[in-house]
């Protein structure tokens, strides 16, 4: 998750490391919770949209949700491993997450339960493997 170029080219790189955190050795989604009013945000806001407070704590979001909708994408800009599936996952705390969906274990269905994992989603221009958080019908995800 380092921003240094030479280091990054060597190993897999996270698409947007700010969106995730490691907790107990497991990848989690990292949102924000307003210290003043408790409003949740994802991605973690720099300012609260409810009360304009600048004090936002990290908030680890639940790693399980319901698939609201999805699509298998066959044509996409360079860099993504096509075809890939994306979807919107509704978390119990009221947040909707856009995510890659891993269908390698089994195909997903609208309304089905999905669990957070991580895995490969594409290749960077310098050849580094791009990874991201994703959701799947089983916990863990692909590597």
């Amino acid at each position: 998750m380092s921003g240094q170029k030479d280091e990054a080219a060597e190993g897999p790189r996270f698409v947007d490391p700010e969106l995730v955190a490691l907790q107990g050795g497991r990848l989690q989604l990292k949102g924000g919770c307003c210290k003043s009013c408790g409003a949740l945000s994802f991605p973690k806001g720099q300012v609260c949209t409810q009360c304009l407070s600048l004090e936002i704590d990290d908030k680890i979001l639940s790693g399980e949700g319901e698939l609201y909708s999805y699509s298998r994408v066959h044509m996409a800009p360079k860099g993504w491993d096509v075809p890939y599936t994306v979807g919107y996952v509704d978390l119990a705390e009221g947040i909707r997450i856009f995510a890659h969906i891993d269908e390698s274990a089994s195909p997903v269905q609208i309304g089905g339960r999905v669990w957070l994992g991580e895995g490969r989603v594409g290749t960077a221009p310098d050849g580094a493997i791009l990874k991201s958080y994703l959701f799947a019908t089983v916990a863990g995800g692909r590597t």
Binding site: D16, S69, Y70, V73, M75, W80, Y84, F98, I110
Partner: peptide, 20 residues
């Protein structure tokens, strides 16, 4: 846009509307 960074493309956005 963070969704674009995660692989959102316009056809996928409308496709998810269609699927739903």
């Amino acid at each position: 846009d963070w969704e674009v960074n995660q692989g959102m493309v316009m056809p996928a956005l409308y496709a998810m509307r269609a699927k739903r």
